[in-house]
Amino acid sequence: MGKQQISSEDITIIIIALIIGTLARLLVLKEDYRQYPSFPNGYLIQVVTGFVAAALGAVAIPALMTKNFVAVTFLTLALQQFRDVRKMEKESLTELENTEYTYRGSAYIDGIAKTFESRNYLAFITALCTSLVITVLPFNLWVNGAIGIVVGITVFYLLKYFTKGKSIGDIAQVKPGKIEVKDSSLYVDGMYVSNLLGTENAAKLVKEEGLAVVIYPNEQHYRINLDNFGQRQAALFEATRALGNKRWNFTRKDYEEGRIIIALVPIKQDIDALIEVVKKCPLLESTKKADEILKPKLKGEK
């Protein structure tokens, strides 16, 4: 075997780390009510980029151990690749904006793109840790491999827990709203929403087929998140995406009590699904505020 050739031990380390890293990406790649990424093309793209991320993580340690210090550039390569994933997602979703029932909004797109980027980091770090543990442990390869797999799985769950975001259902109650049409205006639970129902047909359609939910924040400070236009647009988008949208969709906030209204004329008449989808809508990272650090203690205050 020549000096430049990789040893069979290194190949085993790389393969184990690569499998664990790719599995980590696969386990967080789920198609849920949001229907994104779409199956099968979106899946394939994400699995392949996840595989590449895991490969970068798996190869870095064995390369360094063979005094191939150029391998450090792998890390910069990884960063660049992950940034490209975010950019790709952002561009793709932005281009789709005009073809959806309603806008996702730039805040939501940014959140989705960041999630895809971070999931590649997850695959990378899991593979890197697995590879590191197998390399540094003093036992034989198979024992090291088994411990490496356990460490990889633990790192995966820790990262998954760490990156898990909250949803609207965690900070607010979502209840069905009563739709009324007075003159040409739409009201939900007595709150004005829109006056776009100027024709008889419009009023009739909304009265007969319109659905609405009202979001009640659990605490007053949660209004900072819920009042955010991007957050409301994200909830409205998920509602139209899940139930379809025959005509009209509205979101409105109540300044006095902080209620948020989501109203639409859906294709699928299912109020329970509408409540569920709004509850599950993720809280956008850009709207997140930690209430505790919004109450700074002044000098002398206890």
Binding site: D183, S184, N195, L196, L197, G198, A202, W248
Partner: peptide, 10 residues
């Protein structure tokens, strides 16, 4: 979409 104003105009 159509909005009907209070004065009856559209």
């Amino acid at each position: 979409d159509v909005v009907q104003l209070t004065n009856g105009d559209y």
